[in-house]
Design a protein around this nucleic acid. Structure first.
Lengths: 122, 122
DNA sequence: TCTTGACCTTGAGTCCACTCCAGCTTGTAT
DNA sequence: ATACAAGCTGGAGTGGACTCAAGGTCAAGA
């Protein structure tokens, strides 16, 4: 209930402490509570938001787009349709990127097999 | 038979002209033939190598690793097992990364669905 | 009391992968 | 003859996403 320290959040999210402070600087993260001694004190909501950011980052969303999304959220309820649009577009981008990677991976596999053949016939 | 100009190769591979020259500068590409007027003249082998590089790049291999691979190739036949090792490791990395992206994408989809539910109950 | 360790801030630095610039040459079309 | 497109070089600049450094505060334990 007292919230999480930056070190705890770093462990829980996999983001470094420097990255957490950086995200706050660029306003990807706002209004983080502080305790008496000025240390950041993250809430469960903050943790939830960071976990979503990690999902977006790991699926290749740019910081610029994450920032756009964060702005939508700050605009409140009425931006929900826009948020759906943004995330849906991202979802499709990710699916395309995965398909693209799978296709190019075939080229790599063909090369591996070519080398294996070459070794076999020696 | 006369080979391809840098502009043609750019179209064929999707790499920009600047990137092609950059790859040569960092020795990802070596011994590109020149015509009488000093212009690059790429062979079919060069094109094949570039297409493989594109597969590696699009699947997320770093320039540093591509350079290592290029060095192995220049070492000749005896490096074939090492090339297989390098490419196989990359293949596994790509599969892991795709799996990771698919998993994190579920987090994004959950959020989309959450928003859609929220909109429905309004 | 004094030392650790975890935290704080501002500002600068790093790494990667290009990308752009200025000034020059060459070959083809009008 | 001249204009224009496409190419050349060496070197500098860019954008994205962090990452590090220096110097300071604060609370708890030996």
């Amino acid at each position: 209930m007292t919230g999480y320290s930056i070190g705890e959040i770093s462990h829980l999210t996999g983001l470094t402490i420097d990255t957490l402070r950086y995200y706050e600087r660029i306003e990807l993260l706002v209004d983080i509570r502080r305790n008496q001694s000025g240390h950041r004190c993250y809430s469960d909501d903050d943790l939830g938001w960071l976990n979503l950011l990690v999902c977006l980052r790991e699926t290749g969303m740019s910081i610029a787009d994450m920032t756009r999304f964060a702005v939508l959220i700050r605009q409140g309820e009425e931006s929900v349709p826009d948020r759906v649009t943004l995330l849906s577009k991202h979802r499709q981008d990710v699916l395309n990127k995965i398909a693209q990677m799978e296709q190019k991976l075939e080229g790599v596999e063909a090369k591996i097999n070519h080398y294996l053949e070459q070794e076999k016939n020696k």
